[in-house]
């Protein structure tokens, strides 16, 4: 099979390329639907409890959130460079850009971890340890429940993506993308999608209704 450029079930490499790309897009649609469940909950509760949500977002660290947004956008850029390098068959450039993307992903998760630990420290994690003086206690827990569920699901997707980057790095080292770089392209699509989710999460959780 390794002598062919396409798997046995396909007639041509073009057909394989078309199928795998369509498969990835269909998968990304399922991802949109997955996140949409939480977005629906967010919209509902934000409409019901606007004050609590504004109060909640005022406890989030906009500076760290902004840095993280920039980090992720940069990682999308380096991912594009990796795909571009793969299209031109430049092994070193692929690997370099994959590593950059991976590092930026790690920076993002590191900053996220710092933010989470602040929330633990400030007793803003929902559950028995939640403590907050103010009138919006319960509703504030709803905000933080959504905050942790949404950013947690996003971070989980980042971790999966970083696993895929490592996989690509190893494969690139073996020269696997000389003929067919579809895999890099598909992981690129996934990585951009995960970034895009953050582009929605950041304003909804950190910025909306906030008075600086």
């Amino acid at each position: 099979m390794s002598t062919h450029t396409h798997a046995h079930q396909f007639d041509t490499p073009q057909q394989q390329h078309q199928a795998t790309r369509l498969g990835m897009w269909a998968f990304l649609i399922t991802e949109v639907m997955l996140f949409s469940g939480m977005f629906v909950a967010y919209i509902l509760y934000r409409t019901w409890y606007p004050e609590a949500f504004i109060e909640g977002s005022s406890h989030l660290d906009v500076m760290l959130g902004t840095i993280n947004t920039l980090v992720l956008i940069s990682s999308s850029f380096t991912m594009v460079l990796a795909v571009h390098a793969a299209a031109e068959g430049k092994k070193q450039a692929i690997q370099k850009n994959l590593v950059l993307t991976l590092v930026l992903g790690l920076v993002f998760l590191g900053i996220k971890a710092v933010e989470y630990s602040h929330k633990f420290h400030d007793h803003l994690v929902p559950g028995p340890n939640f403590a907050h003086e103010g009138i919006h206690g319960g509703h504030l827990q709803l905000f933080y429940s959504l905050y942790f569920a949404m950013t947690g699901t996003h971070a989980f997707h980042m971790i999966i993506g970083m696993g895929l980057l490592v996989y690509l790095f190893i494969r690139a080292g073996k020269g696997a993308f000389n003929k067919d770089h579809t895999a890099v392209e598909l992981v690129g699509l996934y990585w951009h999608f995960v970034d895009l989710v953050w582009i929605f999460l950041f304003p909804l959780l950190y910025l909306l209704g906030r008075h600086l």
């Binding site: 399922t30 991802e31 639907m33 997955l34 996140f35 949409s36 469940g37 939480m38 909950a41 509902l44 509760y45 019901w48 409890y49 929902p126 559950g127 028995p128 319960g138 509703h139 827990q141 709803l142 429940s145 959504l146 942790f148 569920a149 699901t153």
Partner: peptide, 29 residues
């Protein structure tokens, strides 16, 4: 399917980590 997946996960998170997305005591629905 992804919608029911995330919904069921939210229920599990609610039990595991006391997130309160559907908890009426917190104003959840």
């Amino acid at each position: 399917t992804p919608v029911v997946s995330i919904t069921i996960i939210l229920v599990a998170l609610e039990r595991l980590f006391h997130l309160g997305i559907f908890d009426p005591a917190l104003g959840g629905d």
